[in-house]
Amino acid sequence: MIELHLLLLFMIVGAIVAVEVGDLISSVVAVGAVGLGLSLVFLVLKAPDLAITQLVVEILCLIILIRATIKRDLPLIKSGRWHFNTFSTLLFIVVFLLLAFISLHDLPGFGKPLLRVASNYLREGFLRTGSANLVTSVILDFRAYDTLGEATVLFTAVMGVMVVMRRIGRKKE
């Protein structure tokens, strides 16, 4: 478990660096480091499917962010009511930690799910679908409706991006 805590510490430090550093490109690189740390966390928790997905999506997002920000020189706002902002942020952190301390006692422990359907999938997934990879057998057979919804979300996102970013309409031949 010690490597998991080290990775979480690394991700928190990376997130703070990403917020506090002055340069835009350095900030993007720090966000990428947080994402790669998350991929290693998935690997430590023995979820290689999620680790692969997180790694490749992180690389794609990093390429898009770097290409989108490499020529822009956005000004950094230094003036403003920083005392008020810092005070309200600290207040919200205290309130959040207090509520979390009260409410997180009732959650089930790590690796002890309340729902019994998951153990059912583990027992019968291989026999009922014939798929050696249990994750695939869940997302494409037992829970295929979820995958249909995810595909619809991606389709809608692509359509929205194309509509918003396309400056020139397609001409009829």
């Binding site: 290689p48 499917d49 680790a51 692969i52 997905t53 490749v56 999506v57 798929s131 050696a132 990879n133 994750v135 695939t136 057998s137 997302i139 494409l140």
Partner: peptide, 9 residues
Amino acid sequence: HLSPGGGFP
């Protein structure tokens, strides 16, 4: 369906 991965990655 055999090893980690799948359609999305």
